[in-house]
């Protein structure tokens, strides 16, 4: 379903609906990192152009805040749009490259009931992971025991990949952020 949508999106790109326009200078799609999603499919960071997305970073074995990040993305999406509204993408990038294989990400998505229509759980290589975090203004740091310290923020990307809002309110809906999501969807 999701792949089908992506293909459609690519067609739309190819037909010139977006492709003809130059990217804004501050678009995170200026950098086109290769990623792999929970189904093992390779895709590129900038493939998401044309999509409003809520993005954050996490790792699946995190028991403290990461489940809350996922929940917060979920309730934020529900507050801002129809359930599983495919116009709003939810993207989680893992920084645990040792443990979060595509298979592990897949299992996590199943367990948490994260519909592939809306959710992408992805990983990149070491270098690009640090770069993605830098672009999104997120911080993380690996601890000797393999766990991570990391900032907990949701970042809103508009269709052109500009960061239009961010929130560090976790565990409940940030009304201002929801408002920003609605606005981004309306402008698309």
């Amino acid at each position: 379903m999701k792949r089908w949508f992506l293909c459609l999106l690519l067609l739309v790109f190819a037909s010139g609906a977006f492709g003809g326009n130059a990217l804004p200078g501050d678009s995170v799609y200026q950098f086109n990192a290769p990623l792999v999603d929970q189904d093992g499919h390779a895709w590129h960071w900038a493939d998401r152009r044309g999509h409003v997305q809520i993005v954050s970073m996490f790792y699946t074995s995190c028991t403290m805040v990461c489940p809350l990040i996922v929940d917060t993305m979920k309730i934020t999406a529900q507050a801002a749009a129809e359930k599983n509204d495919a116009r709003l993408g939810l993207l989680l990038v893992s920084f645990d490259l040792a443990r979060d294989t595509a298979g592990v990400l897949h299992g996590y998505a199943l367990r948490r009931g994260l519909s592939p229509a809306q959710w992408t759980l992805a990983r990149a290589d070491v270098d690009d992971t640090r770069k993605i975090a830098a672009m999104l203004g997120l911080q993380y740091r690996q601890l000797p025991d393999g766990d991570f310290n990391h900032s907990s923020e949701l970042v809103l990307l508009d269709a052109e990949g500009r960061i239009v809002a961010r929130t560090n309110v976790i565990g409940r809906v940030d009304a201002e952020f929801v408002h920003a999501v609605r606005k981004a969807l309306a402008e698309k």
């Binding site: 995190c62 809350l68 601890l143 310290n149 990391h150 907990s152 560090n168 976790i170």
Partner: peptide, 11 residues
């Protein structure tokens, strides 16, 4: 502020 920084909190 544990919620802001997961894990062992801010250094």
């Amino acid at each position: 502020d544990k919620a802001r920084f997961c894990g062992a909190a801010a250094l």
